[in-house]
Design a protein around this nucleic acid. Structure first.
Lengths: 148, 148
DNA sequence: TATATTTGGATCGTATACGATATAATCTTA
DNA sequence: TAAGATTATATCGTATACGATCCAAATATA
């Protein structure tokens, strides 16, 4: 005999992870018209956010901040290099390390990007208090899994 | 002259969309050991959640619920078909439509999946009240963009 | 009813994600 | 100091995402 209650939690509307997945994709799509003007994808933009704050980081140092490994980052970084936004160069003191140095073009893109956060917030159209509450809950979830 | 304040919002720690992106990927990874036992990826699991509730939907009807288009769904559905979990068959009344019919194996996978939601909740380790608050905020964000 | 438009899927190309593995450089330590 | 372990990055294979486009079927409409 089938006990219907066991399957309540399998309904899409009762999933919590599905809206997380859908919202993440939604936001990436909201970014896109803004990032198109810089010729960037969203993950590329994230890498530049990190480097604008900390130029010269290595691949894994960027990866630690974005929770990404070299199998994802290496091709992405090569594309940014081909676009002339950064240089990848082996450290002379430890040739295992690849340091990521912004070019003048990569650095100057920061000025064009300065308006993006407010524009994205307007596009997302979530009240500031709710955006902050959402951010806090997401960060609590992330902090529970530090092995990332 | 450079006004530092303009760039505050470009810092990674001030991004709200980055934790959304990172949390979505985290949760997908939390699902993975559970879904491995069913031989499913997370998006494949989402498709089955929909079909377990509404067997026989068309490609776009599933896509409407998951916010995915045929360019993503068609290859995914072909993989589910190859695994013997569903059949794709053209509607006889409207040959544009492809109906998705679960096979007995696809249907019976529901029983094995019944334990996944509670296991995932345990793995995520977010208190139920916060999980519900997070779900509500995400759904509010999603509802503001119905064109999806 | 013949043509134009719309609709539903499929295909193609590019860019992530990510597990598994490879490789070279560095470090450990017997 | 030579062999083994570790580290940092790269490579490979598979599976999404998604914009753009194609194609056939259905609908609308002149």
């Amino acid at each position: 005999m089938e006990t219907t209650e066991n399957y309540e939690q399998l309904k899409l509307e009762n999933q919590i992870c599905f809206p997380l997945y859908a919202a993440s994709r939604l936001v990436t799509r909201l970014y896109q018209p803004l990032l198109d003007e810089l010729g960037l994808t969203y993950p590329q933009y994230l890498v530049l956010l990190v480097l604008w704050e900390h130029n010269g980081l290595t691949v894994n140092q960027v990866g630690d901040r974005l929770h990404l490994h070299s199998n994802t980052l290496t091709p992405l970084l090569k594309r940014l290099e081909q676009q002339g936004l950064l240089q990848r160069r082996r450290s002379t003191t430890d040739e295992r390390l690849v340091q990521l140095m912004l070019t003048p073009e990569g650095n100057s893109l920061k000025k064009k990007a300065a308006c993006i956060p407010s524009q994205l917030a307007a596009a997302a159209d979530l009240p500031p208090d709710k955006a902050l509450a959402l951010k806090a809950l997401l960060e609590e979830l992330l902090q529970k899994h530090p092995s990332w």
